[in-house]
Design a protein around this nucleic acid. Structure first.
Length: 589
RNA sequence: UACCCCGUGGUGUAACGGUAACACAACAGGUUUUGGUCCUGUCGUUCAUGGUUCGAAUCCAUGCGGGGUAACCA
């Protein structure tokens, strides 16, 4: 605390984690002159998902907290799977999440330098051209328990290697015919050190370098050196790269580079009821199980955005889950709660009836005949925009003789703890009046089609002068003023909490590839039409989030809205303790 | 069967050798013009066994359990 540099305590009461401690330690030790430079290094072969958000928040957060910087670097060393569409979406998503990269780079920017360094390695006798075809190369590498054998091409002279490597680059050999490998140790217990491949011959159009190259560096050869080139101080990656760290460091040492970034590994995010691997997400998209990368059921950032998530909620979530080395699975409700917490404070409240049932107030006064003919009596009542935020102010909503209420808010026969409308029961219509149910009508199928009530004129605004209590408060929409809309409600994409876990049905061996698809939830989307909204919603803008009172948080989906029929996407429902009570009463019987 | 990493309540994280904390979930209450929000309470002898120490979740050893690693993917 005596350190005058410790000025960053104020807003960030965030709990520390092992990565931050590491960085702090390096900083106090004066490593890299106390400088902090991180990077977020996605491969442009898919859309970013919530797991990437964890990494983004870590990398950019670190930079922000330590007065450093953070780059966005595309790890585009494998042209066969990469695409500009992904480059664009990744940049959009990072910005949307709320981070502005200090530098924008591509590993492909370093191809020439990487090549020069490979030549240096050859000259030092630390790399060689290997003619082993793929299958044999694999054989020579040995197994997890058996050491590998030296390639027969391992002893080639530097001159020969230089010449062959030049011919590789010149395109004299077919794809896959030769590789450039580091000469390390074929008997190493660490597979990554068994003469790893640095370059492979691959004729594919690269999204940035076109057909300029027919040899491409591998991840291992490109990543650490790219870090070094940018002056990255802390190269943060996920656990599966732990075994790569010795190689990462071997390259930097072999090249005698002065700047030595520190690789630090953390556990990637796993989420219940979701799948978080680009390969699997790509499959969901390609096979049409979802409508696209931005399907509101997808855990992609574009999907969550469309769903109605806010960047703030995502950042809050990332802050709450922390960072560690333990492989864990975070409960989806954690994500949902982060959104609720954010939107509870910020989202304007509005009344929306999703599944309407008509209510008629029998003793409502006749209106004076007016321009609109019949002349129904209408009152404009004041409603609070956000009880959590007085500065959000109030609005007025029209109230008349005919109203819409939620179908599930009325029951012809109901248990005692059903506080809503039932024959003889009095409830409050929010911000309006107390009404008592006097009767109802049913349709041919016996379902309620209309509810009759009488109102108490003394309860205007929703308070009774005699202080009598009503348990239930219902939302409503004036039938004469209602806006028509659709609502899309989504459930989890998977019905299993752990869709990736193999379903050991007694079968031996690996589960069928794509087993996770078997757990897809067939009812993950439901679209309601004929929803009734209060008239103020005519001003709703795309991506604007609202709380539909007693329902949940919704946002206007511009993409699927049609003229005169806006579509509202439910981001997350409100907690529903009544549903819980009912479930419990049904279950234990 | 090799090497690396990890193991704190239902879940996710904290405690940096000095009497286990926070969030979420669950459960029980309270407040409430959203069965929302908010508030209160309940829920763990830190995988096991030994060792070091006045003192161990923290250090050491062994065992057990989990994850990663045998792409010319990243």
């Amino acid at each position: 605390m005596q350190n005058p540099g410790d000025t960053d305590a104020a807003p960030a009461e965030r709990r520390s984690d092992f990565v931050r401690e590491r960085v702090q330690a390096d900083r106090s030790a004066g490593k890299h002159g106390g400088r902090v430079l991180t990077r977020f290094p996605p491969e442009p072969n898919g859309y970013l998902h919530i797991g990437h958000a964890k990494s983004i928040c870590l990398n950019f957060g670190l930079a922000a907290e330590f007065g450093g910087r953070c780059n966005l670097r595309f790890d585009d060393t494998n042209p066969s799977t990469e695409d500009d569409e992904y480059v664009r979406s990744i940049q959009d998503d990072v910005r949307w999440l709320g981070f502005e990269p200090d530098g924008l780079f591509f590993a492909s920017d370093y191809f020439e330098q990487l090549h020069a360094w490979a030549v240096r390695l050859i000259e030092k006798g630390l790399a060689y051209v290997c003619d082993l075809p793929g299958e044999e190369l694999r054989e020579y590498r040995g197994t997890l328990t058996a050491p590998g054998r030296d390639s027969p091409y391992r002893a080639r002279s530097a001159a020969e290697n230089l010449a062959l490597f030049a011919r590789m680059r010149a395109g004299e050999f077919p794809d896959g015919a030769r590789t450039l490998r580091a000469k390390i140790d074929m008997a190493s217990p660490n597979m990554n050190l068994r003469d790893p491949v640095l370059y492979r011959i691959l004729r594919a159009e690269h999204h940035r370098t076109g057909s300029r190259w027919c040899i491409y560096p591998t991840y291992d050869w490109a990543h650490g050196q790219s870090d070094a080139l940018e002056g990255i101080t802390h190269s943060i990656c996920t656990l599966e790269f732990e075994n790569h760290r010795p190689l990462y460091e071997w390259f930097l040492a072999a090249l005698e580079l002065e700047h030595r970034p520190q690789q630090i590994e953390f556990a990637r995010l796993n989420l219940t009821y979701a799948v978080l691997s680009k390969r699997k997400l790509l499959r969901l998209v390609k096979e049409g199980h979802v409508t696209g990368w931005d399907d509101p059921r997808m855990p992609t950032l574009s999907g969550l955005r469309r769903r109605g998530y806010t960047p703030e909620a995502l950042r809050l979530f990332c802050e709450r889950i922390g960072v560690a080395k333990f492989n864990s699975t975070v409960d989806m409700v954690q994500l949902e709660n982060a959104l609720r917490d954010d939107l509870n404070k910020r989202a304007p409240r509005v009344m929306a009836v999703l599944q309407p049932l008509k209510v008629v107030i029998e003793n409502w006064p006749e209106g004076a005949a007016g321009a609109h003919g019949a002349g129904e009596h209408v009152e404009w009542l004041e409603a609070v925009n956000n009880p959590e935020d007085p500065s959000a102010g109030t609005r007025t909503v029209p109230f008349g003789r005919e109203l819409w209420i939620e179908r599930e808010d009325f029951r012809a026969e109901a248990p005692k703890n059903f506080w809503r409308l039932k024959p003889g029961q009095e409830v409050r219509l929010r911000y309006a009046y107390y009404v008592t149910c006097t009767g109802f009508e049913t349709d041919a199928s016996g379902a309620p089609s209309l509810v009759r009530v009488r109102y108490d004129p003394a309860t205007r605004g929703g308070d009774s002068p005699d202080k009598r209590k009503v348990k239930g408060t219902l939302h409503w929409v004036s039938a004469a003023h209602a806006l028509e809309a659709e609502a899309r409600l989504c459930e989890h994409l998977f019905r299993e909490a752990h869709p990736e876990a193999s379903q050991g049905g007694g079968h031996e061996g690996a589960p069928a590839a794509g087993d996770f698809l078997a757990h897809l939830n067939p009812d993950s989307v439901r679209t309601l039409s004929g929803c009734k909204l209060e008239p103020s919603m005519a001003a709703a803008r795309p991506e604007q989030r609202f709380q539909f009172e007693r329902h949940g948080y919704f946002c206007l989906d511009a993409r699927d809205s049609r003229p005169g029929r806006p579509l509202f996407q439910r981001a997350v429902a409100l907690r529903d303790s009544w549903a819980k009570i009912e479930q419990k009463e049904r279950a234990p019987g």
